Computed example of a mutant assay.
Amino acid sequence: MRKRATAKEVAEAAGVSKWTVIRAFKPGASITDEAKRKIMEAAEKLNYSPNLLARSLSTNVTHQVAVLVDDFANPQKLPFLESLTERLQAEGLVAMLININNHFDHVHALLNADQRLVDAIILLGTAFRDETLNDRRLGPGMPPMFVLARDSQIEGVPAVVCDSEVGLRDIVDHLHERGYRRPGFMTGASALSTALKRRHHFAEFWRQKGVDHIVDISAERYSHEDGAESARRYLQETPASERVDVLMCENDILAIGAMETARSEFGLRVPDDIAVVGFDNYELGGTPAFGLTTYEQPCREMVDLIVEMITGKREGETISLPGKLVVRSST
C-alpha cells in the first residue's frame, strides 16, 4: 500500500507548523494568505490530502452514513440506493453499505456501524424488530436511526414511506371498477416493526366494497423465484373454477415471477384468466412483455426528506408520501 504524505511533511516543506497545515484545510480557520499559498503548493507537490477519519476524532463527525439492506433479491432497492447515495454525496456525506445476511445479523451490523463512528444509520427495507433494538449490547449512545421505504413502529426511529393506505385504496378502486371480485394477495418476507401494511389496507378497502374474503399467498422473500414458486404452488393446489380473478403482489418482482409462471406453466392469459398487480413500478414491469399495473413510489422525494432529517434541515418525524397508480395491460 502506498505511504500517504503527512501534515508534518507538508509543514516541513512549507516552513510552517503542523497545526498551521491543519488550519489551512479547515474552512473558516484563521491563516494568512501567504501561509496558505505555501501550504497548498507543498501539499500539491507531495500529493497530500487531509485524513478525514483522523479529523473526525476531534470533531466527532465522520460524514459517513451506514445503510443497512437485507433483501438484495428485490431489484427495487437499486433505484433507492442510486438516489440515496447521490443525495448523500451532494451533502458531503458518504454511504457505508452493510449487507445483512446469515453471517452478519442486524445487531452485529448496528454495532459495527457504531464502532466506525457513523453519523447516522438508515434501515433500507430491513425487517427490524423491537427486540433487536432492545438488545443489551446496543447502548443509548448509538447513532440516530431512520427507516426508508417501510413504516416504523419503533419509538424514536422516524420513517419516510410511500403512503400504502392511499396507494391500496387507488388500486382497489381501479380493480373494482374493472369488475374483479375474487382478489388474492401475495405477501413477501414477514416484517414486524417495519411492516409494509399493504395486505392490511388491501383487505380493508375490499371489505368496504362488500368483498370479505381475500386469498392469502405467501412468499418467503421478495424475489422473482419466490414469486414464481408461490404462484406455482397456489395454481397447482386450486381448481380453475376456484382461483382468484386478480392477484395483488406486495411488490413488482413477486408479480413478475407470478405472471411468468401463470403464463408459461399453466397457459393462463393475463388479464383474461387472471389479472396481476404489483407495487413499486420497477422498470422491467413496464416493458411490453409484462405491462404490469403497479403503484409508483416517490423515490426521490422520500430520499430528499430522509437526508434533510439526517443533516438537521428537518425535524425527525415519520412522513408518508402519496405515490401514483400506473395502469397497464395486466389489469
Rank of each mutant, 00 (worst) to 15 (best):
V172N: 07
S49W: 05
P144Q: 09
E250C: 14
E315F: 04
R269D: 10
I100E: 03
V94E: 07
G188R: 05
S264H: 11
V211C: 08
T287Q: 12
T238N: 06
L88I: 07
P239M: 11
A231N: 02
L192S: 14
A5T: 12
P143H: 08
P140V: 05
R243Y: 03
E12C: 06
A189G: 11
R182H: 08
H106M: 14
G92M: 09
V61L: 13
T6I: 10
A203M: 10
V16F: 03
L78H: 10
P239Y: 07
H103W: 07
I214N: 03
D130R: 11
H106F: 14
L57D: 04
L305I: 15
L292W: 01
P271H: 09
E9I: 10
M96I: 14
F128Y: 11
R269N: 08
C299P: 00
A240E: 14
A13R: 13
L168W: 00
P288I: 12
G156R: 06
M96D: 01
R328I: 07
N101E: 07
W19C: 14
K26T: 15
K313F: 00
V303P: 02
S17F: 03
M259I: 11
V166G: 02
A255K: 06
M40S: 01
D33L: 15
S58L: 12
I31N: 01
T62S: 15
R243A: 06
D130V: 14
L93P: 01
I274Y: 00
P322N: 09
R182S: 08
E12R: 13
H108R: 15
Y234H: 11
T194K: 06
E91T: 07
M309K: 10
R136F: 03
T6Q: 03
R207M: 12
L124I: 12
Q89S: 15
D163Y: 05
Y48E: 01
